[in-house]
Write a protein that binds this DNA or RNA. Structure first.
Lengths: 151, 151
DNA sequence: CATCTCGCAACAACAAAAGTTTCGAAATCC
DNA sequence: GGATTTCGAAACTTTTGTTGTTGCGAGATG
């Protein structure tokens, strides 16, 4: 099963965007991610609709953050991406009337609900500024300073 | 993203298997699940290799449980199915050397690790006998008694 | 007015899972 | 012993969702 890494990728991009001057074009972001600009626009569309970024057309255009990183949580971005399914596993509903199926799905469902709540809470508790701080701390610890530049 | 419901389905099947006489053929199980016998064999193969079921060929053959339900946990079945990926979301590794990516993935990763641990612990704590008990309790509460029969 | 850039829609390519077909082997039934 | 049932396994096809691609339009800038 192919897994969705848009959340990880977009968090990465947003933090870089905060550290560069001016707008980041879909093209630059696509190069950084090894994909193409249409895919970037598709993904960023949700963030734009959520009010986290703004896009400008024409020369010097591209994407810019519309809020400080401290006012964006990981959960915000997750939701802006369409609140995608967290789990690769689901319960089967072959026989909704079957009490065996119901008992199985009740146990599985409560486990997944608890895990989902934990994830959501954690996502909500981390701002992008926290991630940027963590980046700074890692940066301070090393002598060579690699980042993937938003080329 | 298509989600894997084999765990739910197999738990359902195993509890029914415990309640019928004799072996359940791949054909009957396939009918119950609305699939075909080859898919059933493919899925049950893991449970056979894990020692939870046994298969017999020929007349009267099929699948039988090799242990009491009380000695099988949901986690056992999950693992017997190949320990499939629990999450539909993963971290991206576009730039393993980039400290921003590392900071993002560290935060995401620890959230997923905690959620995974919670799920695994929960799976380990529930035996199929627990599920069967839950079924019996639901059964006792109603007047009409529907189950999906292993036809 | 040429160029850059996003927006959107339509289409193609790809990958993973599920489903199907076919053969063989072993067990049972008559 | 021969017909039937059933699993085992390999090869192949179908399906489905995502990603990637192409093309065109619209707005902004130099």
């Amino acid at each position: 099963m192919r897994r969705d890494s848009r959340l990880s990728r977009m968090l990465h991009v947003l933090i870089h965007m905060d550290r560069i001057d001016g707008a980041a074009t879909s093209d630059r972001i696509a190069q950084m991610l090894g994909t193409n600009p249409v895919v970037v626009r598709r993904t960023m569309a949700g963030l734009r609709d959520g009010g986290y970024v703004h896009s400008e057309k024409g020369h010097g255009g591209g994407w810019v953050l519309t809020r400080p990183l401290s006012e964006i949580t990981m959960l915000d971005i997750h939701r802006a991406l369409g609140n995608p399914e967290l789990f690769a596993i689901s319960v089967a509903v072959d026989h909704p009337e079957c009490l065996v199926e119901q008992a199985v799905n009740s146990a599985l469902g409560s486990a997944f609900d608890a895990a989902e709540q934990l994830l959501i809470d954690k996502f909500a508790s981390v701002t992008l500024a926290d991630l940027a701080d963590e980046f700074d701390q890692r940066m301070a610890k090393i002598t060579t300073k690699p980042t993937c530049e938003l080329v």
